[in-house]
Amino acid sequence: MGVLQMDRTAAQSVQPRRGAGRPKLRRTAIGFAFMAPLLVVNLIVIAVPGALSVWYSFTDWTGLGPAHFVGLGNYRHLLGDPEFHTALLHNLAWTAYFLAVPMAMGLFGAFLLSRIKRFQMLFRVAYFIPYVVATVVSGSIWESLLSPDQGIGDGLANLGLPWLKNINFLGDPHLALGTVAFVNTWQWWGFLVVIFLASMQAVNPSLYEAARLDGANTWQEFWHITLPGIRPTVMFLGLMTVIWSFLVFDYIYILTQGGPAGSTDVLGTLLYRNAFANQQAGYAASIGVVMALISVISVSGFLYLRRRGWDI
């Protein structure tokens, strides 16, 4: 049961209760009392600072002292800022890559797993393990494995792949972004396998039997039965991939901090640098607002299409 599904079932659960013998008002008050802790932490941590961020995005706030209203100044600056363009481009490339490669790997792994009887559980655990490893640790696993002089490239070069010798995967501006995406993929794809597998197990088995009777091969079974059967899950994870790709921060900050020479800079690292190193909190806030807008537009677009009856 996913969050978007919960949204749909919400209406069923709030039927008014009849004849409990207490004043309605009192039950309402108790209801709000139970909601209070969630609302209070949410207001203090998310809602109020979020609203302040929108206000600061229209000011020249440095983080200290007073903020002066500058209208759309920050947003105009964003439009002309080459760093912002580069970062946005990297986010777009990141989104395209994560919609293609990890999704395909996840579907492939889950489909293979769904067709075996023995050891399914064992493989599922093995694939999921990287997902529970902390980002700092998986970052340092690959930092050491990809190091030019002590990594696996050097080891493999000695085993007969000489072109892998002395490649500085994270230090070369042409390779760095792809390398960070590769490391993130290693941690991420097992999560997709587990979720796609759970979804595939809910597909009606008699459909496969019918397809087999009609002489379908494995690829046809996947394309005509499995994929349509799990389409809502694929679409939902696609939406999540888009949202997360525009918010990516941890791996880039841990592995390259946006470098070398801005070649891995994304909106998340650009915002962080402006807020905490350059003392441009107002400008950073405007980047945050742009990131939030991208999320909100993605989710609303998805929900709108679904409400319009699109089968996604």
Binding site: V45, S53, L247, A275
Partner: peptide
Amino acid sequence: FIFYLLVTTALPIQLFLVPLFYL
């Protein structure tokens, strides 16, 4: 509230990070 919670989970932490830090 359910809708609000869904929106909250989709909002980037970066949106409220800076004011939250100073708060």
